[in-house]
Computed example of a mutant assay.
Amino acid sequence: MRLGTPGTAPGQSLSTPRAAGLAGILFAALMAAAIVLARIALPQGGGAARIEVTAGQRDAVTTALELVPFAGIAFLWFMGALREHAGEAEDRFVTTVFLGSGLIFVASLFGAAAAAGTVLDDDQPQEFGRHFAYTLLTTYGMRMAAVFVFATATIGRRLGVFPRPLALTGYLAGLVLLVAGSSVPWSELVFPAWALIVSLYILRSGRGRATAPDPAGPAHGRHSNGGG
C-alpha cells in the first residue's frame, strides 16, 4: 500500500491513491446510509416478534437495499486500489487475509440485503428473514470487516504508508467490530467511518505528493542547460 512507485510517471503514481480515496469515500457514504435506513426502518433488529411494516419503513428498506449493491461495488474498487498500492512489496500472507476477509464481507453484505428484502414481501416469513439478515451482517459480516481492517492496518504500517495513529485507529476499529459487532446496535457504523478516515488520509497524502516540488528538478534543469 504505497503512495507511489519509483520509475512510474507522476500521473500513474497518483492515480491509485486517488482511486482508493474516492472509492473508499463512496463506499463509506453508501454503506452508512444503508445501515442508518435499515436501523431506522427495522429498529427491532433480529428480534423474533412480528412487526407491522409501514409504508415509510418499506420505502426506507427499499432505498437501503438499492444502495447495498453500489456500496459493494465501491468496496471492491477500494480493495483493488489498496492492493495496487501495495504492489510488489505486499506481504503475501497478510494480503491473502486482506483479500479473503474483504470478499467474504461483500458476500455477507449481499446475502444480508437479500434476506432483508423479505420484509417487503407479505408472502414470506418476515421474522426469519429479518433475523437472518441481521445475524449475517452483524455476526459474520462485521467480523470479516474487522479482519479486513486489521489486515489493512498491518499492511499500511509495515510498508510505512500509514502513520502510527492511523494504524492504531484501525486496530481499535477492528477490535470494536470484532467484539461488539453483534451486541451493540449501530456499532457497524464503525466500519464505514474507518474507511472514510483512511480514504481521506490517502487523498491528502496523494495531493501532498502531487504538489511537492521535485528537489532534483531545478538542479537537473541547470545541468541540462549547462550541458547544451
Rank of each mutant, 00 (worst) to 15 (best):
A173F: 09
D59A: 15
L159A: 12
A81V: 10
A23Q: 01
H131I: 03
V161C: 05
F78P: 01
A41V: 06
R83F: 07
P213K: 09
A212C: 11
L99C: 10
T211F: 12
G226K: 12
E66D: 14
A193R: 02
H223T: 10
V119R: 08
A55P: 11
A74L: 03
G228W: 14
E127P: 08
D121A: 12
Y171S: 01
R39G: 06
P10C: 02
R143P: 00
G141I: 02
Y140T: 11
W186S: 05
V149Q: 08
R50I: 15
A210I: 01
P69T: 09
W186N: 05
P185T: 09
D121S: 12
F105M: 10
S101A: 15
L37N: 04
A9V: 13
L168T: 11
T118C: 04
R130L: 08
A49F: 15
A151V: 06
W194E: 02
V149I: 15
A145H: 03
A210W: 00
T16Y: 04
V176E: 00
S183R: 09
G24K: 01
G4P: 01
A167Y: 09
R58N: 15
L200R: 02
S183M: 03
R2E: 14
T135E: 09
G174V: 05
A32G: 09
T135Q: 10
A19L: 15
L26D: 00
P6S: 13
S205I: 04
A9Q: 13
V119K: 09
I155A: 10
T118I: 08
G4F: 07
G111Y: 08
L99G: 03
G80W: 03
A210R: 05
L178S: 05
A210V: 02
A112H: 07
R39V: 11
A19G: 04
D214W: 11
Y134S: 05
G227E: 14
L120Q: 11
L196N: 00
A86T: 13
A60N: 12
A33N: 13
L136Y: 04
R164Q: 12
I104K: 01
G100M: 03
L177F: 06
D121R: 14
G156S: 08
L65R: 14
A89G: 14
T62Y: 08
L175H: 03
G11V: 08
S101P: 02
R157L: 13
G4Q: 11
V68F: 04
G21C: 01
